[in-house]
Amino acid sequence: MRKKSNPVWMVLVYVVLIFLAILSIMPFLIMMVNATRSTTEIQQHAISLIPSSYTMKNFAILTGKSFNPMRGFLNSLIISTGATICAVYFSTLTAYALVIYDWKLRQPFFTFIMAIMMIPTQVTMIGFYQFVYKIHMTNNFLMLILPAIASPSIVFFMRQYMQPTLSPEIVQSARIDGAREFYIFNHIVLPIMKPAIATQSIFVFVTNWNRLFEPLILLTDQKRYTLPIMVSLLRGDIYKTEYGAVYLGLTLTVLPLIVVYLLLSKYIIAGVALGSVKG
């Protein structure tokens, strides 16, 4: 016996939902429109939904002052791709070790992974910086990529996914066929794990793309700046009165993310939901 909801109530629900939707979209919309407008236009009316024609001029101002979006884009791409490959590959490998093999320290190791899952990078950063500085690697991207090999939360996720998906019989029959352990992992296990790998890759990539704290501390050479560091330059005095250029700079850093998000939103939302059930 389901009662139908009051139509007035439903209208209220939709009003709230639409209000929240506008709240989510508006800042980005204003930003993108203002990226096409001149500083004078923005100073007269800061909100407009009609694009103007100053994009190229804004771009010239933007890149004329130490802001190099292409360089930042490339650096962010290298770091994010590297970190994603490391995190996903080695986490799957570690999960494989936890699921398939019978070893003495298996359970303690899993407990240990659970325990270190919550350590935030902020608390390790001073020691990490000193260590990296000592070995003269401060501007080396490897120092931002290699730590991803130990990603406890991804190992946890991969293990949860692998347990019901990968049957030991498959591994066993591959062994009978004469395949070596490492070969089995690369050619049989990885393809089976594809859906989980795809989901996690998106999240690891985006997280690394957005990261500010670690790169800000480690990368001191302007040529090595990532996009978030470039963005932080827009806060500086040199852009104080160049509103159009600032909005364009912000837009350029957000655009790739929004495009990727709109293309993959279905998987991303499903991935967020999936990740939580396990927690």
Binding site: S24, I25, N210, V231, L250, T253, V254, Y261, V272
Partner: peptide
């Protein structure tokens, strides 16, 4: 969910 995926640095300056 969209604001969550956008670079926090960009959002702060925006």
């Amino acid at each position: 969910y969209m604001p969550n995926i956008i670079t926090a640095a960009t959002i702060a300056i925006l």
